[in-house]
C-alpha cells in the first residue's frame, strides 16, 4: 500500500494534465456566462412585464371566481340541509309504509319500551337504595311523612 502511494505520488509528479480544452475556452467562458445571465434576465423581465399587465385582470378574475364559489357553496349548503331533513322524514315514512306489514303492534311497543328500559332500571335501583336505607335506619313511613 505504502509503495503504491509512493508510486501514485511519482505518477502525479510526472503528470501533465491529460485532459485538454478547446482553444481560448477559459478566456471566452466568462463572457459566455455573462451573456447567458443577461439573456436569462431578459426572459425573466419579459415574464415579469407580462405578469405586471395581466395581474389586475387575474385579480379581478380570481375575485369573481372566489365570489361564485362562496355563493355556490352557501346555496348548496342551505339546500342540502333542507333536502336532508326532507329526505329523512320521507325515508322513514316510506320505510313504515313498505315494511310495516312485517311487524306486529307488539314489535313497535317492544322497541319503544326498549328505549326507556335503561331509565326504568336506573330508577328501580335508586328506589331499592332508598328503601334499604329506611329499613336499616328503622324509619317508618309515618315519621317520614311528618318530616316532609
Amino acid at each position: 500500500m505504502k509503495n503504491f502511494n509512493e508510486k501514485l505520488e511519482e505518477l502525479k509528479g510526472n503528470t501533465i494534465n491529460p485532459f485538454s480544452v478547446p482553444k481560448d475556452y477559459f478566456e471566452e467562458f466568462p463572457t459566455r456566462i455573462q451573456e447567458k445571465i443577461v439573456s436569462e434576465k431578459k426572459e425573466l423581465s419579459w415574464a415579469m412585464r407580462v405578469l405586471y399587465y395581466v395581474k389586475p385582470h387575474f385579480a379581478l378574475g380570481f375575485m369573481i371566481i372566489a365570489f361564485a364559489a362562496i355563493s355556490i357553496t352557501a346555496v348548496d349548503f342551505i339546500l342540502s340541509g333542507r333536502n336532508e331533513a326532507g329526505l329523512g322524514n320521507e325515508l322513514f315514512t316510506r320505510t313504515i309504509e313498505v315494511d310495516a306489514y312485517e311487524f306486529t303492534e307488539q314489535h313497535f311497543i317492544d322497541v319503544l319500551l326498549e328505549d326507556k328500559k335503561d331509565v326504568i332500571e336506573k330508577k328501580e335501583i335508586e328506589t331499592d337504595h332508598y328503601i334499604n336505607y329506611l329499613v336499616n335506619e328503622d324509619i317508618d313511613y309515618g315519621t317520614l311523612i311528618d318530616e316532609l
Binding site: L11, T15, P18, F19, S20, V21, P22
Partner: peptide
C-alpha cells in the same frame, strides 16, 4: 480533448 499517455489513460 484527452491526450494522456498509456499510464495516464
Amino acid at each position: 480533448y484527452f491526450n494522456g499517455d498509456e499510464i495516464q489513460c
